[in-house]
Design a protein around this nucleic acid. Structure first.
Lengths: 127, 127, 127, 127
DNA sequence: GTGGTCTAGACCACA
DNA sequence: GTGGTCTAGACCACC
């Protein structure tokens, strides 16, 4: 699950994965993350690297660490809302970039997306 | 660039990469692909694996191999058109799946996409 | 110059020392800091620890790092102004805390300070 | 708590610390100081160094040693009053020196101090 | 147990 | 050269 050959450092990959888990609801506000050691084992990564990830997430306000107790998902609902928006933008941005790189126009992207959603699950009302 | 840990086999990863290059225009109709040996070196992959990739692409009608000459991108415009459509669907499908997994609704996805395209590069006319 | 027994971690001690050098003007805006390796030797500290310091200073906006070139004092005058104010407060806060701990009242502190400044260098106009 | 790398000798550092404890009231007039051995253990310092400290404090009239009984804080109120003043001056002097070294003017120091005291605990009446 | 710091030494990317 | 990442392993502080 972790790409050691990627250009983006492992600690950021891990951070993003955790962010997704939070947005997805797999990690709920107030919930404890695995200890740096456990997460290290799970991810096949050095505990120091996990700690770097947790530190980064804490700097973003997404997570709070309590000495001797562990690292916990922030309970601030605003943070979660912001995170959700941020991930949405990131994902869309990545998608559009990829499509453009393959030569698809804005119109094709939108049309293709609508087709996909319509086929998959019935009606979709346009604005 | 190749993910050895991924669930999808390497030869299919390679195939998809080549398909993108074709759709993108990096590889033009009639153009010769690198030899299996060269492609193997470029991709850090075993030539046998490259061979398997080329065979797969040929079965899809996307490339043609000519004994003693090499492997060439098909010049059949229909094939290319189909490929383009196929990649578009695949990419959109992957994108939507990811967004849904993070809990985004159809409406959010469409709205977010439109916002992105509008912000990024001026006007966008809806259908 | 570095206190290895202090409760505050080395990387923060180093950060504070650098902040003082900047406020003092020993390090001017745009000036290059020593490389992490050099600073490590100078401070008798591991380069990784120096890097942690630089990273922290960068997160505070006090310093900018350019890959392959080095780490430089920010040229943003606002940042410097803020830093100056911040250090002033910190120093005063520490001083007052110490004085209070020794049982001195607000009045004694102010009066003592005024006496000191007056003795040392002539007149001082009160508001 | 003792800085072995400092320029000022350990026995003076210890002396100053004890002086603060007296001014703060942690050590009351007439109270017995720990034996040189105990103080050595507490401070992680050689008993001879503690001996030197006690001798110095006695020379300043701050403590009295009674053969076979131990070392006691002086009960002379004048001595304590002097000590208090002396520590106040020393602390202020150190503070001002530091602020000046960072380029702060007399006016800034006074104003900053008043701000701090006012913010921290309500009203403060000027002279 | 938990996280936090520090080191030594490796390898990479950028220039 | 520069900074950036990662590891392995140590020791500390808090609970």
């Amino acid at each position: 699950m972790t790409d050691f050959d990627s250009a983006t450092p492992i600690y950021l990959q891990l951070a993003e994965r955790i962010q997704r888990q939070i947005v997805r609801g797999d990690l709920k506000p107030g919930e404890k993350l695995p200890s740096v050691r456990d997460m290290g084992v799970q991810s096949g990564v050095n505990p120091n690297t996990v700690q770097r990830t947790y530190r980064e997430l804490e700097a973003m306000g997404i997570v709070e660490t309590r000495r001797g107790q562990g690292t916990f998902v922030s309970e601030n609902p605003e943070v979660l809302q912001t995170l959700r928006e941020s991930l949405k933008r990131a994902e869309i941005s990545r998608f559009v970039e990829g499509m453009k790189a393959m030569g698809f126009s804005d119109a094709e992207i939108i049309a293709g997306l609508k087709d996909h959603l319509t086929e998959a699950e019935g009606r979709y009302e346009d604005d």
